[in-house]
Design a protein around this nucleic acid. Structure first.
Lengths: 239, 239
DNA sequence: AATCCAAATTGGTAGTACCACTTTGTGGCT
DNA sequence: AGCCACAAAGTGGTACTACCAATTTGGATT
């Protein structure tokens, strides 16, 4: 009966209000939200509820809080993805293999889009990274590796894919330092990986989608090999 | 100086504590979290802070709150993704095209994985959906379309990809009902889409990755066409 | 043994008070 | 006039209390 609409949770009122501010362009990125006490009064909810909403938007990456200054609309979503993926990991809902498969799909799409959209400057950056790969310290290789993938993603010009790839990279850093290090420390796999990387950059220079496809395959072939071996060992340990 | 480590925000203490419960397997999916008042006392923080943490985990999809009963560990992450993507939309950080590109990448990976992993039962389900596509009501087509994509995703056995695709589908539903309806209401595009769908199922039956690739291309070719046309019209309207 | 109702439990919300940090503005100094 | 310092105001961070609303629990009644 009583359609009094008050079933809406208080903190949702706040979130929806902030959404409406964004929609009506009364609030833009970088802008400052009304003070918590003001929001509280305006919407007729307690400051607790306001803060629950703010905290939520904070974790989502929509806003960032600065004590003493205010809450500001930002729009950094990578961190949110990292948190979510970490949680999925913790809950055993995903494993390395699934992340690797997702990453493979996105890297492939990214490089294909990059071939269509990359600029001359972006190619220069990649050329430079590749040439630096020659003076290989193990430590440097990890950094250069990440920088290369990141720059290819950037060239795709797809914010969403860039963000997700970045988040995946961070999660992998957090959970499988060992695997990355192992791959890079072995002569043979490192060599294949290097070939794959060079192939990827080459494909961007030549706008060669077939080469891109092959290179991505080569790249993730190495990783899958390791993952499958780890999986088998895990199974053996169960006996 | 004062490395007193108390810089950690109170609500982060709570989140980390819950994470540790999960890590130590003292808390499993479906399990009930300690009561808010207990958490508050245990960790030496106010109930406010506990609630900010709980709310955050709630929005992330990690837990779900039931008034009077308790907070329970769930692990439904789709909703979180939907919220985040909606926000990115609102903030104009992403557009239809980028979502479509991401979806294309995931659909492709999903069908490739499905070819390797699909079971006989899952194929039967898809066969049935395809045959139902013949008796085409516009309304039904939308539903069947979604069901088909979802079942292919399921067959990939990659939770992460399944979740993201599901989230993308919901976001698209929320924001571009018109586009979907338009594509399905036009004789020519609908026909191509149907061919693509049949091709996708066919490729799963025959374990034919080339056909899968072609079919995905055909499928998203239709969508991209519409998107590009919309984009051009938007540009024209700027004059 | 099954049912029902009251009490305890637990999440949802409001309000107040105070701390910590930042911004602002005012007054005094050069 | 311009600069600096310091006080005041503004704002997020946290704690505590009180009460409401829904669920669960457990004992009394049948």
């Amino acid at each position: 009966m009583g359609d009094n609409y008050s079933n809406e949770k208080s903190y949702m009122k706040v979130i929806n209000y902030i959404k409406s501010l964004i929609r009506d362009e009364k609030l833009c990125i970088g802008g400052k939200l009304p003070a918590e006490r003001d929001l509280s009064e305006m919407l007729g909810v307690s400051r607790n509820s306001v803060r629950e909403a703010i905290r939520t938007l904070d974790i989502m990456g929509v806003i960032s809080s600065q004590q003493g200054a205010g809450n500001f609309l930002t729009g950094n979503f990578e961190n949110n993805l990292v948190e979510s993926l970490s949680m999925m990991f913790l809950l055993n809902q995903i494993n390395y293999k699934q992340i690797s498969q997702l990453r493979r799909a996105l890297e492939l799409e990214a490089i294909m889009l990059a071939i269509d959209n990359i600029t001359e400057e972006e190619i220069q950056i990649l050329r430079q990274i590749i040439s630096q790969l020659e003076q290989e310290t193990e430590e440097n290789n990890v950094i250069l590796d990440k920088r290369m993938h990141y720059n290819i993603a950037l060239a795709s010009k797809n914010t969403l894919i860039i963000n997700i790839l970045q988040a995946l990279s961070e999660v992998l850093d957090k959970f499988i330092v060992d695997l990355r290090r192992e791959i890079l420390s072995q002569e043979d796999t490192r060599e294949i990986l290097k070939e794959a990387h060079i192939g990827m950059v080459e494909s961007l220079i030549e706008r060669d989608k077939n080469l891109a496809y092959e290179s991505i395959n080569k790249h993730f072939g190495v990783i899958d090999l390791k993952l499958n071996r780890d999986e088998n060992e895990a199974l053996k340990n169960k006996d």
